[in-house]
Design a protein around this nucleic acid. Sequence first.
RNA 1: GCCCGGGUGGCGGAAUUGGUAGACGCUGCGGACUUAAAAUCCGUUUUCCGAAAGGAAGUGAGGGUUCAAGUCCCUCCCCGGGCACCA
Length: 824
Amino acid sequence: MKNQYHPADIEPRIQSLWADEGVFEVDEVEGVDPYYCLTMFPYPSGRLHMGHVRVFTISDVVARYQRMQGKHVLQPMGWDAFGMPAENAAIKNGVPPAQWTYQNIDYMRGQMMRLGLGYDWRREVTTCTPEYYRWEQWLFTKLFEKDLVYRKNSIVNWDPVDNTVLANEQVIDGRGWRSGALVERREIPQWFMRITDYADELLTSLDALDGWPDPVKTMQRNWIGRSEGVEVCFGLDDALQPLLADQGGALKVFTTRPDTIYGVTYMAVAAEHPLAVHAAADQPELQAFLAECKQTESAEAAMETMEKKGMPLGIDAIHPLTGERVPLWVANFVLMSYGTGAVMAVPAHDARDHEFATKYGLPIQQVIDALPGDSVQLDSEAYLGKGRTINSGEFDGLEFQAAFDAIADRLARDGNGERRVNYRLRDWGVSRQRYWGTPIPIIYCDDCDAVPVPAADLPVVLPEDVVVSGTGSPLKDMPGFLNVDCPQCGKPARRETDTFDTFFESSWYFARYASFDQTRSMLDERAEYWLPVDQYIGGVEHAILHLLYARFFQKLMRDTGLSSASEPFTNLLTQGMVLKDGRKMSKSEGNTVDPQGLIEEYGADTVRLFMMFTAPPEQALEWSDDGVAGAFRFLRRLWRAVAEHVEAGVTDGNRPSATTSEQKHLRRKTHEILAKVSDDIGRRYTFNTAIAGVMELLNAVAAFTAENDADQAVRQEALETVVLLLAPIVPHITHELWHGLGHETAVVTQAWPALDESALVRDEIEIVVQVNGKLRARLQVIASADKDTLERLALADSNVQGFVGDKPVRKLIVVPGKLVNIVV
RNA sequence: GCCCGGGUGGCGGAAUUGGUAGACGCUGCGGACUUAAAAUCCGUUUUCCGAAAGGAAGUGAGGGUUCAAGUCCCUCCCCGGGCACCA
């Protein structure tokens, strides 16, 4: 082998070899152990960024490690190809979104290959192709038949100058990003999927996802937000009842605290609520306020942080238990689209109600007594504890659950309320008023209303030769697309021009990789072979939405008979971001580092090694140019260590025996590190500590002098171990070094090395001695030393004696194999 | 505002089940090799006291539990992610 490490000479050659031999192409073989390793597919934004490199490398290391464990590994790659950036690029440069997207895909695919990522490229999936999206159109029409999709009005951000719908991202400080106009909330009809029908299953089946990180499961639980409470009907004067005829002429609210119902001192409704609109009819100030309420963006963060404002409507509701009149207010923080668009307010026992009541001088009525040890200071804040009821008429003196039950029962008996389970989760709005997405397969007919496109007419192909202006979808101006006969009655009708939320495509692509070339159905039996995904890897930012939608889709596909799995991803690894100078690496921050230049300068292995060494995968990774140089230096040192060894003569690679203490020491180090790295990669996914371990082993090799054949054999074993342990992380250099060490086979086909337990045995161990918990001495003792011996040796140590002196020993703690703590 | 993370040397990080804080790497400093540079190698690098042996302090802040706390509990501060139309 050559003396010098030149990655540019070896990497492309080895990559071609893998491609020519189809090393990473896998089919469905019975009698082997399949392993499906998947990375969240990227949006083809132009070029790979460091976040991509990181997540792809993590996944590739896992896939290659599992191969070495004897698994039959599938690792596919594809493109989440629909989305806004293509439209923005089209507006800016006049290039049609499709062309821009496909160019980006070609470039980025080349970059992935140059990183040495082991994908089965035959299975590449691109979501903007009709071959892909036809199946989600088909599924949508199936779900339409099953009443799992429906249409209702819902709120969008409307830019009144550009006359277009804005994404939350395009609203900056309440104004349109291009026009600068104040954004309005506008209601338009949109398609929804009944994810709330699956809320309970999505929640309970989280418990069985042992391979998911707890924080992600907690976030999903909180997002679904199951709560048990009561839907309470507040009465209305006769004249107002017709306004809420659909709610039985009463004002319905949901509460999880029916025990506080005697503390209701006002109620609040949304600006769009019929009672608010009615009351505003003859009150210009109120009308102005309702208009103001609509001039806020719809994002929840904006709603929650804005100043809470309200106005009295001048009408009352009637308390269902006391019969007292309760004033109605309109408030900007109540949303018509959540629940019933109205809330009961208990300022004494709810923080937001307290703040609002204080601001507007509304009464605060305490109805819950403090729990022991608490104090109630209603002047300054609400009391949220679940104490006994007071000031609650016949319900006084009850503890929380008793009060809850008694009041709920009473309301139910009177026909004024019902126990209900409520979810924070809302149905998924999938309509987007954008061009570059999957056409929603619906036809609107004046007679038949919304009709799904028949399966035989699918796919509804998105026209690709378009000019994008930035004000509304170009589909609206394309008669060839728009005009169509109604599939039911044959009369002239119009196509839906909205497209699907791009989360739609990313909610099932993991299944399509298995059946990538199937033209007759969405999935086939190959999906049964591979699903569920064994290891899914992607950014934390997807912890809720994408992962929840994908779980939902898997259940939909199960209930449509397409797959038998209930969950899509058995194990999940969420990887942190790549930062530079403490900030997210991004174009807008202007602090990006282009992976391409680094690959050219140092090679793919160095980039991969740096990414895996610098931080554990779940944490943010701080970029460092010096760190990359350090990674390269390590590979060069490794190359040289192997080259020098090879020059001295390779051995047969059989397990050597150790006689000298130097040989024993190196063999022990070799197998200790092997055990550690196996655990770090296989169980803990802490690739950084795995690499640190290998570095330690290489340092031990460097400190070892081989003087004879026996030494040489021990060093061969150590170096082969180093090469195999690093093979998943730096696959090119280890390919060369493996050959250099005398092997004919390719390292990519090698098995993970086997541990020799006998090499781990130690004769002596170090014991730490503490006095009152402070380290005072270290003792070398024989490994078999018993408790008494340790105590005696510890007390005999001169430094320990200095601290113990003639003080009486009050306690003596011995942790076998570790430490002795003397308490005086 | 709400939910979920994180905070340890000059820097990235390690410490896996409450048991030696700082593994491994980077940077800096000193040295070797060299005509020189690059590359490489050796030493050193938490702070303070000390010639050394050794000692004291130390894991965002403040309290607590324990023989023992970076790790567990309580309160607070700061940073990051998500908040349903960015992907």
